[in-house]
Design a protein around this nucleic acid. Structure first.
Length: 246
DNA sequence: AAGGGGCCCAACCGCGGGGGC
DNA sequence: AGCCCCCGCGGTTGGGCCCCT
């Protein structure tokens, strides 16, 4: 009954990885590449479960990891992305080259949460902690960015005047205007962020202009709405032009 | 100098989703 | 269509380190 164990726990090591285990894992992945984590430990001669190997590689051994302290720009970007995506650490990590979801999650829980609380901002809702008056009305801007048919949010059409939750972060513009992906010929290396519609709707204020709320300059890639709340945040590596809704 | 408490972060656990059969 | 396997994700844990008293 129930889920089968991911590995034979009786014959696997647990806890901190040794240098030798690291070396074995790195050598194996260099020779054979990633993939089939379940069979990797046996093939690599490791007494670890596949999940453990995958985690060790992704969070610690991967050669493209940046490591080191987070910059102020990364801080700001994480906060912005969290306000949009919630605890979707993998999505946030996808927009921070060299950072892992685990690293960002830890950093959030140990530093940013405290920082936001210190600023009087609820780290969960991104709203002022003392915010009692939640009667802010956010209006849609259906003309600002007419989306392609496949990306129109039916909810927006169904309830264009509905009252939405107030901004959860005082410097975030929450005017709704989801930009269609454009300039697709550029930056092919940037993976599109695939955001389930529920992610944007569940407790995140209904809808947002990604460009504006991330501080992109008016007229910059992905943002040409009428928002006037440019924040001056440098987000050069960020690009939501490939944003997909599913 | 010692020890107690808090912090940090690597690693584990359980679950959900996707894909193959 | 349903089942099973595997991967990946998010939440949680625990051990080591650091700082304060």
């Amino acid at each position: 009954m129930g889920r089968s164990p991911c590995c034979e726990k009786a014959h696997t090591n647990k806890g901190a990885w040794t240098k030798e285990e690291d070396d074995r894992l790195v050598a194996y992945i260099r020779a054979h590449g990633e993939g089939c984590w379940r069979s990797l430990p046996k093939a690599a001669g490791l007494l670890r479960c596949g999940k453990s190997c995958r985690l060790r590689w992704i969070n610690y051994l991967r050669p493209d990891l940046k490591r080191g302290n987070f910059t102020a720009d990364e801080d700001d970007l994480i906060i912005k992305l969290h306000s949009l995506l919630g605890n979707k650490w993998s999505l946030i990590a996808a927009r921070l080259p060299g950072r892992t979801d685990n690293e960002i999650k830890n950093y959030w829980n140990t530093h940013i949460r405290r920082k936001l609380i210190g600023r009087g901002i609820d780290p969960v809702t991104h709203r002022p902690l003392a915010d009692a008056a939640s009667n802010v009305t956010i209006s849609f801007q259906p003309d600002a960015h007419p989306p392609p048919p496949q990306q129109q949010l039916s909810e927006a059409a169904e309830a264009p005047q509905q009252q939405l939750k107030p901004p959860r972060c005082p410097d975030l513009n929450l005017d709704l205007c989801i930009s269609p992906p454009c300039h697709q010929e550029e930056d092919q290396e940037l993976k599109p962020v695939v955001v389930k519609r529920e992610v944007l709707q569940a407790g995140h204020g209904g809808g947002l202009c990604f460009g504006c709320s991330l501080g992109l300059q008016k007229g910059a890639a992905g943002c040409s709405c009428s928002n006037s709340h440019f924040l001056g945040l440098r987000v050069g590596m960020l690009d939501f032009r490939g944003l997909e809704m599913k």
